[in-house]
């Protein structure tokens, strides 16, 4: 269970949901319903310094209508910005992966903006824990 030289303080990090809401409104005008963006994140981070994130937007990628941008944010970090992915029809699919730092247990949000202005969103809580028990 328990740890010498504890480095991670678990529990909810300083959630800055307001900053995330602000950023979403700045991007797409209003906070969309949660649908259309599948976010793949671990339930519990193996290492808060490098948390894998993948997303796939369920939207067409044709010349007429396609996903232009996907903004990823985390509401418990010193700043909510993580990354903004920019796509074109040549991407074939609006999907991507990266790895990020999470300062503690918090929500990760991905907002997609389509070429016609439609907004889609997904979110998931990632837990950062001390760890150390097992069956």
């Amino acid at each position: 269970a328990v740890v010498a030289g504890l480095t991670v303080i678990p529990g909810l990090a300083n959630a800055d949901e307001a900053a995330v809401t602000e950023a979403i409104k700045g991007m797409v005008g209003d906070v969309p319903d949660e649908s259309g963006v599948a976010l793949d994140l671990p339930e519990i981070a193996e290492n808060g310094n490098t948390v894998p994130l993948s997303f796939t937007v369920d939207a067409p990628m044709g010349e007429d209508l396609y996903v232009k941008d996907v903004m990823v944010m985390a509401d418990g970090n010193p700043s909510p910005d993580v990354a903004v992915f920019h796509f074109t029809p040549m991407s074939g699919v609006a999907a991507g992966s990266t790895r990020m730092r999470l300062a503690g247990t918090q929500n990760v949000v991905a907002v997609a903006r389509l070429s016609d202005g439609t907004a889609l969103m997904g979110s998931k809580q990632v837990k950062v824990t001390i760890g150390g028990c097992g069956g």
């Binding site: 269970a1 328990v2 504890l6 529990g11 837990k127 824990t129 001390i130 760890g131 028990c133």
Partner: peptide
């Protein structure tokens, strides 16, 4: 810190 440790493990369970 002791309380934090117990809370953390309790949430894992």
């Amino acid at each position: 810190m002791l309380k934090t440790v117990l809370e953390d493990v309790a949430d894992n369970l």
